[in-house]
Nucleic acid binder design. Structure first.
Length: 486
RNA sequence: GGGUCGUUAGCUCAGUUGGCAGAGCACCGGAUUUUUAAUCCGGUGGCCACAGGUUCGAAUCCUGUACGACCCA
């Protein structure tokens, strides 16, 4: 980092000198606003009309390239919408022409002039007036190869966005996706709610929390790992269809599929069960594909799948039993340990449930490519789900899996407060992740009565990864967490 | 946590068997009135990620550390 320091200082020195020159000429290098008549995209769209009426346009953007020819200059500008060539002539601008020498690649400028086509056919602004809008002091990444260093791209995302405009599109697509998600649930009669991010007791998932301290209340607080327990309180309160698009925080490792802060949508609907939620997820996926894609197929990491209702359903325990050759529900601890050993899973620190889920991930989930509902999980790994109506060792739960990745998780929600207390106690006794103390207020809410309810959680970052065909979660999160530099 | 790979100029990258540190773009100076990766002439810029070691001599070989990527856990 210190290597190029003096080089940068030299460039900055040159440019700071230009700032001084501008000040001497009574030109503010950082003025307050610019009245734009057209974006560059608008100029392209309405070129015929504008060039016929000889209208003077005012546009602005960042200088990306400068091609000087003595008494003329061509420059390429970029705004958010597009690029545009501008053409400056000394015979048109007179003394002001030399002011452009104080401008550099990376500066924001405003230009006024007529729009015309050069002899090579490029739409160009013939500049009659120009002004600095913000002076750049540091050299931009290289114009042709862009910025490739993935570490700089993540650490200094603004440079990535400047140098690689296609990256800007990915994040706009992500925003469009989130908008569609919101619209889908709004259109289906759900109400968007906001529940606490800072929680005195965390819960609703299996994860370690980030802990903080609230001075005024003199107590520890946690950043939420899920908002399940709060949205269920709203169902108790009488809402029947609610959702929240939420940022959750899990104090765990970072990899291709995990960022410690991530986005979820959680959805709760009264008077339905997990079958009803499966229907909802099928509709939801079709809606997204119909609005984001040309077909109901999806390509991710060179594999293509088709989304066709009804999605495939496989039973969690049946699939796992078949692979393992024994019944996990009646298996002895030793059998599970042996299987973990066989498949390279470090089982020593894991609870029974965690062992089962690791085995499932390794033997089943990662091989599921087609859109699939894995249903009816063991009770031991699902403390918030209702017991299966036909088998008390199971719960009514599904995970929606595509390309080996869990996109959604849903239950017939447990609403029996006595049963829920037992599950929490078991969870605590087994020292499972996701609970440090029993949330008495939540249990009290259930004691007032929560109607039958289906609940759903969808990982928005992973959904974005898959829908936008990006190989890493960092490619759909603007500022992913990285270790400290140095 | 383990394994593999990477880190050389602001950016993108070369660097042969261990023998003076290179190119393109950017930057600086000059020329240039339709260029568009403009062109032409000249120039500045590097503690080769960091710390040790081997060697007459290390960007290059060895060990460790940091950061990153991928794979595994």
């Amino acid at each position: 980092m210190t290597l190029g320091f003096f080089r940068i200082l030299f460039t900055m020195d040159e440019r700071l000198n230009k700032v001084t020159e501008l000040h001497k000429m009574k030109i503010n290098p950082y003025p307050y606003k610019y009245e734009r008549t057209h974006t560059f995209a608008e100029l392209r769209e309405s070129f015929e009309k504008i060039s016929q009426t000889a209208e003077i346009v005012a546009s602005c953007g960042r200088i990306l390239a400068v091609r000087g020819h003595g008494k003329t200059v061509f420059a390429t500008l970029a705004d958010e919408s597009s690029k545009m060539q501008v053409y400056l002539r000394q015979d048109k601008l007179g003394d002001r022409f030399k002011v452009f020498e104080l401008f550099d690649i990376g500066d924001f400028i405003g230009v006024k002039g007529n729009v015309f086509k050069t002899k090579t056919g490029e739409i160009t602004i013939l500049v009659s007036d120009f002004t600095i809008l913000a002076k750049n002091l540091r050299p931009l990444p290289e114009k042709w190869h862009g910025l490739k260093d993935i570490e700089i791209r993540y650490r200094k995302r603004y440079l990535d966005l400047i140098a690689n405009p296609e990256i800007r599109e990915i994040f706009k697509e992500r925003t469009r996706l989130v908008g569609l998600i919101r619209r889908f649930f709004d259109d289906h009669g759900f109400v968007e709610m906001e529940t606490p991010i800072l929680q005195p007791i965390y819960g609703g998932g299996e994860a370690n929390p980030f802990k903080t301290y609230y001075n005024a209340l003199e107590r520890d607080m946690y950043l939420r790992i899920a908002d399940e327990l709060y949205l269920k309180r709203l169902i108790v309160g009488g809402y029947e269809k609610v959702y929240e698009i939420c940022r959750d925080f899990r104090n765990e490792g970072i990899d291709r599929f995990h960022n410690p802060e991530f986005s979820m949508i959680e959805v709760y609907q009264a008077y339905t069960d997990y079958e009803g939620i499966m229907d909802l997820v099928e509709c939801f996926m079709e809606y997204l594909l119909d609005n984001l894609s040309d077909s109901r197929t999806m390509v991710f990491c060179d594999r293509e799948v088709e989304f066709k209702r009804p999605f495939k359903r496989i039973k969690y325990t049946e699939a796992l039993n078949e692979k393992l050759g024994f019944d996990i529900l009646s298996a002895k601890e030793g059998e599970l340990d042996q299987s973990c050993r066989t498949h390279g899973i470090d089982y020593k620190v894991l609870s029974t449930g965690a062992k089962i889920d690791k085995l499932f991930g390794e033997l089943i989930q990662k091989h599921i490519i087609e859109p699939t509902f894995v249903i009816d999980h063991p009770k031991v790994i699902s403390p918030l789900a209702k017991v299966h109506r036909k088998d008390e060792r199971l719960v009514e739960r599904f995970e929606f899996i595509v390309f080996g990745t869990e996109l959604a998780n849903a239950f017939s929600e447990l609403n029996d407060p006595v049963e829920q207390r037992k599950r929490f106690e078991t969870q605590l006794a087994q020292k499972q992740e996701g609970i440090s103390e029993i949330d008495e207020d939540f249990l009290e809410a259930l004691e007032y009565g929560m109607p039958p309810c289906g609940g759903l959680g969808i990982g928005i970052d992973r959904l974005a990864m898959i829908m936008l065909n990006q190989p890493s979660i960092r490619d759909v999160i603007l500022f992913p967490q990285l270790k400290k530099e140095k």
